[in-house]
């Protein structure tokens, strides 16, 4: 492999989590209606931010997180800065607890993700309620977060394989 190709591959590996995050946002902006809308679309970018904030914060710098969130705000038409802020706060909280999560059982990490998702829900609900001036019904948000938490083990394993076998390997 030539020097150039090697460099390109390295760049691609370094950017992989960011690209995955952007792809997750695009899925959120597509008319995905699982089982005729009975199951809400999981918020995959939150999983990506959580996972790489624990296992490889250098692969997902804060600027990437900000851009992923901002793209989501722009595409879904919500207030600008909302999802960007939520993802960044999630990253900050997870990174501050990083030493606790490192090397733990996946069950414990899953519980950690559930807590982060709950925290994110509270921020989202509070901000949106403040901005619209009424207490919004939280059911749809909780349901969507629940769907996200339920799919976490699946994505956790997939991202773990990707991270260990493809991204970190020299």
């Amino acid at each position: 492999m030539g020097y150039r190709a090697e460099n390109l591959l390295r760049l691609f590996k370094a950017a992989a989590p960011t690209l995955l995050g952007i792809f997750g946002v695009i899925i959120l902006a597509l008319p995905v209606r699982l089982f005729e809308g009975a199951i809400p679309t999981p918020i995959i970018p939150l999983v990506i931010v959580f996972f790489w904030s624990i296992y490889g914060p250098n692969y997902l710098p804060a600027l990437s997180v900000f851009l992923i969130g901002l793209l989501q705000d722009l595409l879904t038409g919500g207030p600008l800065g909302l999802w960007a802020g939520v993802y960044l706060v999630a990253q900050f909280v997870v990174m501050s607890q990083r030493s606790y999560f490192m090397g733990r059982e996946q069950k414990v990490v899953w519980l950690g993700f559930a807590l982060v998702a709950a925290g994110a829900s509270v921020i989202l609900w509070l901000v949106m309620s403040l901005m619209s001036g009424v207490l919004l019904p939280a059911g749809a948000l909780l349901f969507q977060m629940l769907a996200t938490v339920m799919i976490y083990p699946l994505f956790g394993v997939a991202f773990g394989e990707l991270h260990r076998r493809v991204l970190v390997e020299v």
């Binding site: 250098n58 804060a62 900000f66 207030p79 600008l80 800065g81 802020g85 706060v89 900050f92 990174m95």
Partner: peptide, 23 residues
């Protein structure tokens, strides 16, 4: 140093500013 706290805080501040201005 690649993922520094400073940048993180700065971007959180930017997000809050964006939110407030869109309010």
């Amino acid at each position: 140093k690649a993922n520094s706290r400073f940048v993180l805080f700065l971007l959180i501040a930017v997000s809050v500013l964006l939110l407030l201005s869109s309010l």
